[in-house]
Every structure is written in C-alpha cells, then in structure tokens.
Design a protein around this nucleic acid. Sequence first.
DNA 1: TTGTAAGCGTTATCAC
DNA 2: GTGATAACGCTTACAA
Lengths: 343, 343
Amino acid sequence: MAVTLRDVAQRAGVSAMTVSRVVNGNSRVDAETQRRVEEAMLGLDYIPNRLARSLVSQQTKTIGLIVPDVVNPFFAPVMRGAESTARKAGYRVLLCNSEGDLRLEREFIDDLVAHRAEGLLLAPASDHSRLALLRLLKGGFPLVLLDRALPDTDCDLVVSDNVAGARRLTEHLIGIGHRRIAHFTESDDVSTGRDRLEGYRQALEAAGIPISEDLIFRTTSDRIGGYRAAQMMLGLDPLPTAIFTVNNMTALGTMQALRERGLSVPEEIGLVCFDDVEHLAILSPFLTVIDQPGETFGSLGAQLLFERISGKAGNRSRRIILQADLIVRQSCCVNSGVPKRAI
Amino acid sequence: MAVTLRDVAQRAGVSAMTVSRVVNGNSRVDAETQRRVEEAMLGLDYIPNRLARSLVSQQTKTIGLIVPDVVNPFFAPVMRGAESTARKAGYRVLLCNSEGDLRLEREFIDDLVAHRAEGLLLAPASDHSRLALLRLLKGGFPLVLLDRALPDTDCDLVVSDNVAGARRLTEHLIGIGHRRIAHFTESDDVSTGRDRLEGYRQALEAAGIPISEDLIFRTTSDRIGGYRAAQMMLGLDPLPTAIFTVNNMTALGTMQALRERGLSVPEEIGLVCFDDVEHLAILSPFLTVIDQPGETFGSLGAQLLFERISGKAGNRSRRIILQADLIVRQSCCVNSGVPKRAI
DNA sequence: TTGTAAGCGTTATCAC
DNA sequence: GTGATAACGCTTACAA
C-alpha cells in the first residue's frame, strides 16, 4: 500500500509527470506511452494519494455535513439529498453525527476545517453552535445552515416556515373543536422550537383563545423529553384535549406516557407534531403531522454551498424558506370532532 | 484560511519547527517562546493542515465505517460503539452510507483507500462485496467485517450467532404451539439471511416438523420486501399461524400488509424477527425479537481493527461470534398460546 | 531549547 | 509529447 507515482513511472520507464498526466487524463499523452503507464499502474495496484493531490491542488473536493441525529428519520432524506447533489458535483460528503452535543459538534467542525473541507452543511445543535462558527464566519468559510437558524448570524440558510407550519397545525386542532391545547416545546435556544411556539401562539390568538402558560411545557426534543413533559401535563385538571409536540421524537415519548396512563390517542386525547415518524406512519397511520421536505433541505443546501464555494454566490446571504405539508391523519379526531371527554 | 506554520513562525519570530513543537506539545519548548507562539497562533487563527501532517507522518488517524443503512435503528448503536472506541484511540471515523448498493459501496471503499484511511469497518451489502475487497485483502489492509460474513474471505469478523438466534426464535414459536411457521428470508447472497434460514430449518427438524418450501419466501430485507412477501404468503390456504422475518424492516412491511388485510398481530397471526425496532418497541411493545448487541459490534470491531492497524494482531484472523438476546413480547401469543385460528 | 535540511506524493510551470 | 524543478504545509532527523 505504498505504491507511488514514481514507482509507476519507473516501471513504465517514464517520468512522474507523465504518469500524473495519465492518471488525470486531461493533457495529451502518446497512445503507446499511455498504454505502458496504465499497465504499470495495474500491475502495481497503484492508487493515487489524494492527500498529496489535495495538498498541492488546494482543493479536497470534500464538504462536511453535520446533523444532530443520523438515526432520526427526518434527517435521512436530508443526508440523501446532500449526498446525491454533492456526488453530481464531484464532491464527497463527510457525514458527522453531533448527537446534539455542542462539544462534539465543535470537534467535528474543527476537524473538518483541519482537513480542509471546502464547505460545511450544518444542522446546528442550538443557538450556542454559533460560537464554534465564529471563526468560519469571520473567515468567509462556505457555510450553509440547515433546518435551524442561528441568531445574529448572517449566512446561507435553508429552513422551513416553522411559524406557519405550527400555526396551521394548531389551527387544524382549533378547527375541529379543540380549545384546550397543550404545547411541548424545546429549550428556548433552538430556533425551530421558538418559531413553532410562536406559530402556536398566533393560532390561539387569532382564534381568540387565551394563551395559558400552564399548557406550555419546556422540555428536550427527544423521546425522553416528550415522556417527561407528558407526565407533567398529566397532572393538569382538566387535561388538555390535544397536544402539539415540537417534533417526532417528542411525540413518541408523549405517546409512551399516554399509553402508560391508559389514555388512547386519538379517542381520548389528540396528538400532532412536526416531522413524520417514517415507520410508525406506515404501521399505524394516525399521527397528524407537519411533514418537512427533507430531501430538498439537503439538495438545496448543497447547491447553495457549491455556489458559495465556487464564488458564484455574491456577498449577500441567501435565506431559503420552504413550505411544509400538513398531513392530516386520525390523531385528533378530525372525523368525529373532538375527543369524547371534551364534548 | 491560508495561514501556515511559517506565517505563525514569522510572527512569533521563531522557526517553523518550534511552532510545530508547540502545536504538537510533545517536545520541550521554552515557556516564554511557547507563549509567544501561542499568541501568534491565536492572532492569526492558525489551524494546522492535517493533509500535510498526514502526508509526512504517513498516518491519517482515520478509519472508515460503511453501513448499508444509517437510518436503520440496528446500526445506530453500531456506529456509536465504533465512534466512541475510535475517539478514545485518537481516531476519527468516516461514516459512509452504502444504501446496500454495491457500486456505492465500492466507491466508498476506493475513496477511503485513496484518502489513506488506516482501516475499514465494513457491514457489507452482500457476498458480492468481496470483489471490491480483493485488493485490500491481498495488500493486508486492516479490515474488519461487521454483522455479515463473506464467503471464502479470511479476515477479522464480528457477527452474531445467527443460526442459534434463528433457532431460538423458531423454537420459541414451536414451544407455544405453532406448527405452520412461515419464514421471510433475503436473497441467498447475504450470510445473515442464509444463517437465519438455517436456524429456522434446524428448529423445525429438531421438532419433527416437516419443512415446507412453500412457507419460505425469498425477498429483499427492506420494508417493501416484507410487504411483498406477506402479500405472497396471504395467498396460502391455510395461512401460517406465525411468521419469522429476517429482520426488523421486513417485519414492518409484513405488519403493513397484514394490517391492510385486516389480520391482527398477535391475535390472528404471530410475528417475530431479528433486530428490534427501537421506537416501535416503546410505543407498542409487542414484537418478539432477537436483539443483537449493536454497540458491542461497533466497539469490538473497532478494537480488533486497531489491533490490526498497530500490528498487534498477528497473522491469523479473529472471528468473534456474539450471542444475541431473545426478547419475548406478545407478538406470538406467548401468554395465551397460539392464535385462535390455530386452535 | 532551537534551527536546518530533506522529503512525504502529488501537481504547476516552464523548458525541451 | 515529455521531463526537470519547485512548490503544497508539515514532520523526521540531525546539528547547533
């Protein structure tokens, strides 16, 4: 595994430059020479060293993609979209799983920069991710934020219209008769959480329903968070007739707590959330959700990034806001009206 | 973003070597010199170029991990285990999603080699993956196979005892009264599929139940595959009283088809499979499964790989076979015996 | 403790 | 069409 250009050159009886030319296939090389070189390459199992190539060419043809959770089905299409777009542009994607951990995220960012990735697609863990980006931002490093915005951060961005989505979801609940709607939101330092809470508030306000802070539960956006919030909520009397959770994992935890308490969805309490739960939706298609266009997040993000990398992007940052779809299923009794208890 | 060692050296008024020493922190440097260098590094936002470092040091401190599906919950703990073990050893992991596609897998392998990854953890797409590995195998490239074995391939390996697991799963079904058990297996070129089929056969044989080829359905190991196989199976008369699917995704597709047909699990038909379905298990804990120790796959695999990389491994290849757990839930009427129809 | 020289494997540049 | 030479940014080996 230590065959170099020179080894090939020697065996083919030519100079290193000629081998390089054959490898890259752009300059003209005599047909017979080329044949000899190719034979030598095959015979020696030569594999070009990209480190060396990148060092001199000053381009690694590599971008990074950091997501908070590779296993979350929401990010699957995002990754796929980014990968395929990058591949078409001749780039590879370094996939990093930050697990929503700021320290880990920062390590990945630094590592990516140290390895001279040419750009970064980042679905940040929280507002605090900004700190790790300061250097990149200052240096004009090609960066596109995915899914979540960062405060006071002027850079390319692909997000959903979370306010509108949350409003629609809440309006949907109101439209079928719900008045007492709980909202499980995440900590205040994540833009999607803030925006969804805002949409929830707007919908209630527009419907003339007073906003009760008792119905808003702050938690983490994972399954445990949903479970805990639901347990807190179950202490309320009377119970809400419906719950709107900030995302899919939170909804799962909520389901779990409700099940344990013997409350059935949607018969006894409605449940809606952001992001679909892929496999669950197939098995028991009952959860009404806002479904975000994951693949578009990825491919559009990559596209913006490549424009940035190639310098075609200009100075102003682009902010792309995608519309998400409301998928109405049965989790809030759209057919029969509000849960029985509410009638 | 083009600050080099020399720039720092110049600003600090020292030689490049001194800066290198400070960066790496092993050799002794005068306290005052060190301070000056560190100040210069900070002032210039210096980030060492790892490409250059790797080129000269001949080690990238990088390994590759290729899995067929990053979103499959089975691989989540595998990735986590590998990552954390690698991190402790000072290595980073390049995570690649082959999507079970041989072409993609080969591209990732070649790319990893070209970038001089020092080793590879591979959960191969199928027996045909062997082709892409021939060169590595020949060159003694550090390689550890995960989850699936490859025929005629002598290299380090971490797998489950799939035969035993499948036998236990089938014996469990037999033990609670099932006689007519269908098996959904994947194409014959995947070792896990073959082994699980073998375990299924052994259990039936041991119980004196004749093996009916009509009850064995070959399909793909994804959700669609399960769906299709179930549809085929639904043409049988009489229906089997239980189904054993080759993995979790196949079980999901099967569930979907059964639901559409109005057959409920486990009341009307039993269902068991390999690999848990993380979120589903929490929501409706009914699927009886063989649960493989994913995290151990990852961490043990990484450990073997590092021994190989550091030359501590010797010539013989190690084959580690882990035992998997049978998790009995309700998907085959363990409490009440066989489904009603079977009585 | 610090510096100098050489070279890692490749490509850019300019000769021939 | 082909080759020599000098980088790319860093570290190893040795010298001071």
